[in-house]
Amino acid sequence: MEQANEQSILTVSSLHKQFPVYGSFGKLWGAKAYVNAVTDVSIQLYEGETYGLVGESGSGKSTTGRAILGLTPASQGNVLYRNRDVAAMSREEMRKFRKDVQLVFQDPFSSLNPRKRIGRMLEEPLIIHKMGDKAERQEQVFRILKTVGLQPEHAFRFPHEFSGGQRQRLGLARALIMNPKIIVCDEPVSALDVSIQSQILNMLKRLQQELKLTLLFITHDISVVRYISDRIGIMYLGKIMEEALTDDLFHEPLHPYTKALFSAVPDFNRSRLKERIILRGEIPSPISPPSGCVFHTRCPYATDVCKTDIPAVREVRPGHKVACHLVD
């Protein structure tokens, strides 16, 4: 995909998010320490693309997604939607923003209200945003159910009557009914079996193309992100370590973390004798992240400069950014 003639629909610039950790007297003595969930993350989403945000647990990928939606206010930095700062939006603008930017959750079991019929649930945002009269709304609900591969009669059922895959379709239907521009998908297929996962992924990819959606796809699954994304950002301990077009990234990962991450993925297509980088140790605590490059404690190539200097995110090839001292 050529980016030159594409518009950036959403820009995240040097986003920081810290969560306070309180001591035994709660907020009385103030915060004891801070969890640095997201540190200096900048992302641009181009209209009509799928951006995959990959990371292990604790890497800050979900917090980034939530900050973009305005669900957790950023500590520093800002999010621009169509060149308007989300934090500075008026109530009316915010209403429009919430309509344009939708979210699909990981767990379809806990994100649907068990006491509401599906039709009612899907209709609710239309009522809130005062879209159409009763008949039109009903029509819209039936149409959206068809779009995600369900039947109109499903509108009269309750969530427990659906299987896991169907519930994820409902989660998507709820996001789509507002005719959004951007959908943030937070691990939408992680709870599903592979045979169901492929159904949902195919549908998501098809709908993205048909409806010209912009997707921010947050996941820990490397093979899923490769299939769905146009561009990928790799996060580690609250920072973007590498960002590139999907094919470039898989053809030549540059960051040592990306290389280790890719080689750790079990894959029956590769020969068994492949060279494997097994990282020692674990993700350090985000309360006191390592100095310099956050990855230096586990990096097999770390040098002295990595321990002291924070590597800047540099564009080393066209569209290929990496935060590492050792990559030229």
Binding site: S198, V224, R226, Y227, T246, N269
Partner: peptide, 12 residues
Amino acid sequence: LIQSIPKLEGDR
């Protein structure tokens, strides 16, 4: 099952 899993190589 084997074919349903997205691959790390080849056409995506």
